[in-house]
Design a protein around this nucleic acid. Structure first.
Length: 616
RNA sequence: GCCUCGAUAGCUCAGCCUGGUAGAGCGAACGCCUCGUAAGCGUUAGGUCGCGAGAUCGAAUCUCGCUCGAGGCUCCA
């Protein structure tokens, strides 16, 4: 709230014209007041009753000082560029008027254009300006964020045979990773004094980097990173569409005063980015839920259409995580999230679908190169859901084939009754969720999503929220952390061939062989193989070393021998050996290794001499 | 948000403790070399030492403030 306070001999104002629809209903007549303090007042966004009270107390104090007993509150928008909505403005103005004591107080009409003339006294205390804001600098937190810390959870380990053991009594000696997850989630543990290894790798492999000109947690992706990310995005999208997901695209920002948003806000514990635009208070989505639910609520759904699966790959979702929580590609403020919702007619259908998505998620992770022993499962449910669906839960745990972490809530705190996630455990013992799915029993109603059932009655669907891979950036993080671990164990890490930015590098020994190499490159490119040519004027050893540093799987030196022979000399990075292969067999080997995965063209100049160095 | 640490060439870093003309390697440009499976050689260019103040004859170096970044904590439904 901003106030310009003037001690006046007199003020005279005349309302001339309504400025806004919600202007006060008054008789526009000339008003004159003598010996008065006039407060030109702008009520700003975030002002509330406490601000009104503080302001009036402060004004009364100064009025006492100058010995004046008459106050005119004069709504004056021009003091601020961050005004509250007219409704709030008027409400707070009235609150100020009502909470005053022992003075004569009036206000000039709100929402009117007014003409005024004023005579200000000339003493030192006659003019002052004041700014009031909420006393606490405390951030607005959603009720979900606040209640999160109050949740009462019971922690168990469930073994593949379906037995639940209290976490304190479980013998973790053969389940070190699960122990880390359990300790990580249920208690707090451990201080690490080094940056996670993937941060260095993401720079050295020219995948991604921090962007100092943006907000923290908003990364830049270099050509290599863009290609890898794009391949993962395409793969996950293909898998979800095979499963039956229907891809859509929805806006990334929403009006926080939209009725469906306001209540969801309070059920989803995330901090948001806000954008003010033309009086609207917008926020950047922190999930794809909004868009898909709003869309689905406009669809005319029959039980015959269900389960109906909507899918969106959000580039991006935004969560304003606390600055200290951000780490490399593990935790970001802007991230790409495949999000697939299934609208189901009843719990039985939801559970059937839930099973399918569980299998889908395991398959997707495996296709990405993240295997079962790379992650640990966590499963969370309400006590009542567990009692009614023990078989489902036991079957899922048995499928994983190893003990899983269980969190059980006495009552429903969130909008879901069951949730599971696969957690990747990194080199520093940090757990982060990849795939996840939830059974949501609230949002169908909240968003007014309905379908017509067999009896021609309107019902709200149960909604599943699945991300079969988790955030794409986080998948890259998991892969890089896995690679770092392999390096530590003395192994040579390797991107799955379908993710490698360059799959084949040709090294012509001399310029004379460049043409041959180009022709070969064209041939391989036609077969959807990503091939480039190191035509730089460096020794053969140097160029092979550079290819090694880029983790390129196949290196082919092109010299006299190759030109005069039908076979290629293929240096295979996994072994370091050179093999003689015909072009056909070489192509086949690559196509077999990348079968069923998306293809993408090289995302850099084919000649290395034409590429800038990305020094990171 | 709290604590700790950091900021010097395009990149990685040395120099700072103990104040006195700004250093290396990599990379880049140019030239030599035309090479057979993890680093060939030479020359050159490239810096407002994050910003601001203080003390000093003199500051990359000491002191204070600020900005930005990173890690940890908290957090991660």
């Amino acid at each position: 709230m901003r106030i310009l306070q003037l001690h006046c001999d007199s003020i005279e104002y005349t309302p001339t014209k309504k400025e806004i629809k919600s202007a006060e209903e008054i008789e526009p007549k000339k008003t004159r007041i003598e010996e008065v303090v006039v407060c030109f007042t702008a009520i700003e966004e975030d002002d509330d009753s406490s601000v009104a009270k503080n302001a009036i107390i402060d004004i009364q104090k100064s009025m006492k000082q100058i010995g004046c007993n008459k106050l005119l509150l004069y709504p004056y928008a021009h003091l601020s560029s961050n005004l509250a909505s007219p409704g709030t403005g008027l409400k707070i103005l009235k609150e100020m008027q009502e909470s005053s004591t022992g003075i004569e107080i009036t206000h000039a009409p709100f929402g009117w254009t007014k003409a005024f003339s004023i005579q200000v006294k000339g003493h030192p205390l006659a003019e002052s300006s004041k700014v009031f804001s909420k006393d606490s600098t405390k951030e607005k937190t959603s009720t979900a964020l606040e209640s999160e810390s109050k949740i009462k959870s019971y922690w168990y380990i469930m073994t593949p045979d379906g037995k639940m053991e209290e976490i304190e009594k479980f013998n973790f000696s053969n389940h070190k990773q699960l122990e880390i997850l359990a300790k990580y989630e249920s208690a707090k543990k451990r201080s690490v004094d080094e940056p996670p290894p993937h941060v260095n790798l993401m720079k050295k492999l020219a995948i991604a980097d921090y962007e100092p000109a943006s907000d923290s947690g908003n990364m830049r992706f270099y050509p290599n990173g863009r290609l890898i990310k794009s391949q993962i995005e395409q793969y996950v999208t293909d898998k979800i569409r095979d499963y039956g997901g229907i891809e859509v695209e929805t806006p990334i920002m929403y009006d926080s005063h939209h009725p469906s948003m306001e209540s969801y806000f309070n059920r989803f514990p995330a901090r948001q980015y806000s954008i003010d635009s033309e009086g609207k208070h917008l926020f950047l989505r922190f999930a794809a839920c909004f868009g898909q639910f709003l869309m689905a609520s406009d669809f005319q759904l029959s039980y015959k259409n269900l389960p109906y699966k909507l899918y969106e790959l959000t580039r991006y979702s935004f969560r304003r995580e606390q600055s200290g929580e951000l780490v490399g590609l593990r935790r970001l403020r802007a991230f790409t999230m495949p999000d697939c919702h299934a609208f189901c007619k009843d719990m039985s259908q939801a559970i059937d679908e839930f099973r399918k998505r569980f299998d889908l998620s395991r398959e997707v992770l495996s296709g990405l190169g993240i295997e079962e022993n790379d992650y640990e499962m966590g499963i969370r449910f309400t006590e009542s859901f567990y009692n009614e669906n023990k078989e489902l839960i036991k079957q899922m745990v048995s499928k994983v084939g190893k003990p899983v972490l269980v969190e059980m809530w006495k009552e429903k705190f969130f909008y879901f009754v069951l949730k599971w996630e696969f957690n990747f455990i990194d080199n520093l013992g940090k757990a982060s969720a990849l795939s996840t799915d939830q059974i949501d029993v609230e949002n169908g109603k909240r968003y007014g999503i309905t379908f017509t059932d067999e009896k021609n009655e309107r019902q709200h669907p149960i909604i599943l929220h699945n991300s079969p891979s988790g955030a794409v950036e986080r998948v890259i993080y998991a892969l890089l952390e896995k690679f770092a671990k392999q390096v530590k164990d003395g192994k040579r890490p390797q991107f799955p061939l379908w993710l490698a930015p360059t799959q084949v590098r040709l090294i012509p020994l001399k310029d004379d062989f460049l043409e041959f190499a180009s022709n070969l490159a064209d041939k391989l490119t036609e077969q959807n193989i990503r091939v480039d040519i190191d035509d730089r004027n460096d020794t053969i050893g140097k160029r092979i070393r550079d290819a090694e540093k880029e983790w390129i799987n196949y290196v082919l030196v092109i010299g006299e021998k190759e030109i005069n022979s039908p076979s290629l000399s293929v240096r295979d990075r996994t072994t370091g050996d050179v093999r003689q292969l015909s072009t056909e067999n070489f192509v086949k080997e690559i196509q077999d290794a990348t079968k069923g995965k998306p293809v993408s063209k090289l995302n850099s100049a084919i000649l290395l001499s034409q590429r800038p160095q990305i020094m990171v």
